[in-house]
């Protein structure tokens, strides 16, 4: 089982990213669950979502305490939340950032999702949409396939710019 924890702020699309990722994995023929942890918080507060991907049906409902992958959609969260908590020794971190962050050891990747969203003019209520480009990065990391990512995005969003943004992130992420 591959376990992913997504950190974002309420309203940034972390929950939707989790859903899209589960849907893409599902379209890859895997079993997947996506589960946001809802606090009583409103827009702007740190939120986490959990995604599990496996070849067998998934019976676990509790939170992910030892993720294989941590995704951080908003690096400002790292000041208030220990995003690396419980990360497996051979785990990976994916940051929404134009630059690598100091102090993030091990397998740490970064891609400028915000820049990609802005370049595609993917902005809703003043905030860039990060949940579709991040899927492209995850495809590059072989967690899901790019065709399934595109399929999943088209199932949830009519706007083709979302697919383009995912493709751009796929191109941009260095592995």
């Amino acid at each position: 089982m591959y376990e992913i924890r997504i950190h974002s702020r309420g309203g940034q699309g972390g929950v939707t990213a989790a859903k899209l990722l589960a849907l893409a994995a599902f379209r890859d023929g895997k079993y997947a669950t996506a589960c946001p942890f809802y606090g009583a918080e409103r827009r702007g507060a740190p939120v986490v979502s959990f995604v599990r991907i496996d070849d067998e049906p998934i019976k676990i409902y509790s939170q992910i305490h030892e993720p294989d992958l941590v995704i951080v959609l908003d690096t400002s969260i790292m000041d208030v939340v220990d995003v690396l908590q419980g990360l497996k020794d051979d785990g990976t971190v994916l940051l929404n950032s134009a630059h690598p962050l100091p102090g993030c050891n091990g397998t740490c990747r970064h891609v400028d999702l915000t820049g990609i969203a802005l370049a595609e003019n993917l902005v809703v209520a003043g905030s860039p949409i990060l949940n579709t480009p991040v899927l492209g990065a995850l495809a590059k990391m072989d967690i899901v396939t790019l065709p399934s990512v595109e399929k999943a995005i088209r199932e949830m969003f009519a706007d083709e710019r979302n697919v383009k943004a995912a493709e751009a992130a796929y191109e941009e992420l260095k592995v």
């Binding site: 599902f26 669950t33 996506a34 589960c35 946001p36 942890f37």
Partner: peptide, 12 residues
């Protein structure tokens, strides 16, 4: 059905 753990989880 359990609040959040089932009401809000995505499964097939």
């Amino acid at each position: 059905l359990d609040g959040f753990t089932l009401s809000h989880i995505m499964q097939s």
